[in-house]
Amino acid sequence: MTPHTEEILERCTGYVLGNLSDTELGALEAHLKEGCPACEAEIHRLGRGAWAFAAATPRLLEPSPMRTRILEGVLRESREREVKKGQREGRRAPIPFPRRRSTPVFGWLAFLAAVVFAVSCVIEWRAASRMQRELSAAGEEVTRLNGEIQSERQWTAIATAPQTRVIQLAPTPAGWAQFGATPPHVRVTYDSATRQAIISASGLAAPPGKDYQLWAITNTGPVGLGLLHADRDGRATIRLPNAGDPFTLSAFAISLENEGGAPTPTAPAGPVVMAGKSGT
């Protein structure tokens, strides 16, 4: 396996923006094929930003006839390619017809047999093509599921890793004022080896126009880890590929911010309502 270096990790930014040189792209893809959880996590995290950046593009109305032209064109071209593929495969295995003299009756029988044989060949070929397509689709599905399983394994491994810490966040005085007698429950499961963390919360519905924001408190100050969007029941489960360096991380905290989060990623603008020491 190619060694995992900072240089390779840095290429993940260019990978999600699609602006690596061919050499850099080839090296990173070869590295990813060998399976690298750190690079996959980085691509997952940065890819989210690239998608959001592109998705914020002003929407333009496509000309109405374009839809029909594109969809019909896709299906027509797909069929044509299938036919051409079939013709190529058909040419590869020509059916030999031996020359021989025969009586007219026997000739008709031979002709009939040849027709039956040709028809059965076509049927067989179509069945084989269908099975080949199904096999190809099944193979792609297996690859996709393997990727999914690998990703899930990485996250479930956090729960059983010996270096994992479970940090329960408690309300601060500002938090008690905010939540009253029923504060939310927030737990951070943090793996200091991989720096991955899972945040589980209940009873954390933000007031209208507000967002809860998670912070890592480090020896150089707070670092924003993202917004906590709970469902309508106030529950949220969030996975962080990189929650911070265990040697500098001292606590996790949650602040109540205006919608969209604090203006700077290094300081909460709103009150810190929950906090918990990381145990280092």
Partner: peptide, 22 residues
């Protein structure tokens, strides 16, 4: 350039609700 790109992507990515991404 790498540093600016990464800072921007992380900052923007953090705005995306988890359920919209996975």
């Amino acid at each position: 350039i790498k540093s600016w790109s990464r800072q921007a992507l992380v900052r923007i990515g953090d705005l995306v609700p988890h359920e919209d991404w996975t």
